[in-house]
Amino acid sequence: MSKIEIKNLYAEYADKDGKFQALKDVSFSVRAGEFVSVIGSSGCGNSTLLGVLQGIISPSSGSAFIDGRPVTGPGTNRAAVFQHYSLFPWMTVRKNIAFGIKQAKKSLPRNARYAAAQVFLTRVGLSGSEHKYPFQLSGGMQQRAAIARALAMDTDILLMDEPFGAIDAKNRSNMQKLLLSLWEGDGPSKKKTVVFVTHDIDEAIFLSDRIIMLSNSPGQIAAEFDVYFPRPRIHSTIRETGEYINLRNKLMTLFYDENTGVAAAEEYTI
């Protein structure tokens, strides 16, 4: 059974020009322990898709299932990382993480929560900054803390909405490596299922087992690609391979084709 199953999902918003269709007939599934990226240009429904999985957006029709049960609201089996404001600005970094742990595991005593928070802060390289407030950290450090909170909540599923979208190129590459090392660090049986929204093609290839490309308004699945590079991956090595260049070109063509739709995508689908 797949961990996440999305069936015929439609999402519509009323905006000032009438109706805006964010998602149209989106169906796919994600296996347990799989890392899936969803690529699409901004505003093409990828955040809506993630919102449905997080349980904070209700679809117009269709539904999402986790472990075979329909998603009706947020749950402690999922943790989220956003591009901005994942952390609460009035809590110190450690308090933010301890708060996340408290929400996920109500029974854990206070001391244990803070000790666990410290462990995860160290893992993302933030020990020494535990008493700082988010505004005192750089964007990259804030996202490290947000990832630490998501991991500390010890959920099966990690939902990430352009988590590195506001970070400069160099730090971004470091964050990608950090995320992969943390994710791969869990043994095969405990590996988290990740759905990762991005509009950076290289990021998607480097991180994912599978890439789902959404087309522009309405957001439909344009194509799906499996990414076979063995793990642990080293960016500089895989970047030179023919498969990488080939896959990247296919994704680029789809991404920059303004009329990208299912019909145009069919010839690329592997």
Partner: peptide
């Protein structure tokens, strides 16, 4: 209150009194 803060709290399953006094109150302070 920034909608993204509320969304972030919702994904942590925050609700009821915790939402009002631990999230909304400090955010609106």
């Amino acid at each position: 209150v920034e909608k993204r803060i509320i969304d972030s709290a919702k994904t942590l399953c925050v609700g009821g009194f915790t939402m009002l006094f631990r999230i909304i109150l400090p955010a609106a302070l």
